[in-house]
Design a protein around this nucleic acid. Sequence first.
DNA 1: TGGACTATGTTAATAGTGTAACAAATTATT
DNA 2: AATAATTTGTTACACTATTAACATAGTCCA
Lengths: 212, 212
Amino acid sequence: MDINSKIPQATAKRLPLYYRFLNNLHIQGKTRVSSKELSEAVKVDSATIRRDFSYFGALGRKGYGYNVEYLLEFFHKTLNQDTASNVALIGVGNLGTAFLHYNFSKSNDIKITKAYDANPDVIGTEVGHVKIEDIAQLEETLDDIDVAILTVPGQAAQPVTDKLLKAGVKGILNFTPARITVPAEIRVHHIDLTVELQSLIYFVEHYPLDKK
Amino acid sequence: MDINSKIPQATAKRLPLYYRFLNNLHIQGKTRVSSKELSEAVKVDSATIRRDFSYFGALGRKGYGYNVEYLLEFFHKTLNQDTASNVALIGVGNLGTAFLHYNFSKSNDIKITKAYDANPDVIGTEVGHVKIEDIAQLEETLDDIDVAILTVPGQAAQPVTDKLLKAGVKGILNFTPARITVPAEIRVHHIDLTVELQSLIYFVEHYPLDKK
DNA sequence: TGGACTATGTTAATAGTGTAACAAATTATT
DNA sequence: AATAATTTGTTACACTATTAACATAGTCCA
């Protein structure tokens, strides 16, 4: 498979998952792993895993499997290009605070380096080793940040988004219930907690799964 | 379209979204809406919306659109069957606390009615109007709960899951980085915050979107 | 070294999702 | 009342994703 061809969206979404589990295996001291073993750990079909890997060339060896360290190193390079990515968080409410305490960088190379809020009681304090800045100063102080996490109240989502775009942000992880409007070249991923919960309930009540 | 045929997963995931926006329209006093208008609000193609609705029969009128109140009532019945769903939350850390404070029931009929933790300092306290119970008593006290939100540390995910299954839980919304093992008839939805963030960064750095 | 075994990488079949296009039906307008 | 405008519901197609199956090539063990 040609390494220059585009990686399918579904595959790209699984890469960080593979990366994390490979890290676990490495820490456990495992040196090799088969697609079948990895499949059981990440709950993704083994053929899908092999197909996903094959987009990046022949990473394994027939009859052997994959070398954990080699694969890990490969994905490390692939996922993080060269530099670690800095992320900003906007809205230090309950959810925002949870993210600041959450240690993203444990087995990944992501760090929230800037955080903003509108509440004067919060501005200037430190949450999870990040100093909270005034959202009013966002456009002037946000620099060199490609991706922002949006955890503001729904009605603030669009105005804050507009500010983020002016500051040059290219991707937004939107946790608000609001659907934000952005130019075509900006990526937005939505995680709508109510929708997730409600659709799970819908599935459970309407489509009970069959026992094996 | 036959109402008895199975609703596609992708459609079912959008239903709660439609429901919320119809609620907004209703509150704004709008009595009718077209698929095109709704499309702009929820950022879903209008043809997709019409197709989604058509799985439930002919809900609209040609040349007119959809009656907001009728549609709202219909989805209310569809999403909530008859009874409001009670949900349990396991793990009152930063993220769990955020959910307890989050008001799911605002325009939905979902409520977290039970919450558990292992920390003695937290057990017995009240967070967001829910009394925190001891996770050691989970199997004995969890009753009539179909769906649980899992916000425990990764290493606790599997043992807690096993307890939930014994207590009769049918669906789990898993926020831990761990992939849990469950019988075939149990539904699990994963929301992996690190994966979401990392894959967004990957897309932004590797596949910049084209300007319109 | 030789033969049994293993597990990849890929092909081909299948399933699932999204959307452009349009006939049909209804509403709105003159 | 006749015509223009609107908007649905559905068909048809394109695209994306999943997975079973297997030839191939390397591994492992006696």
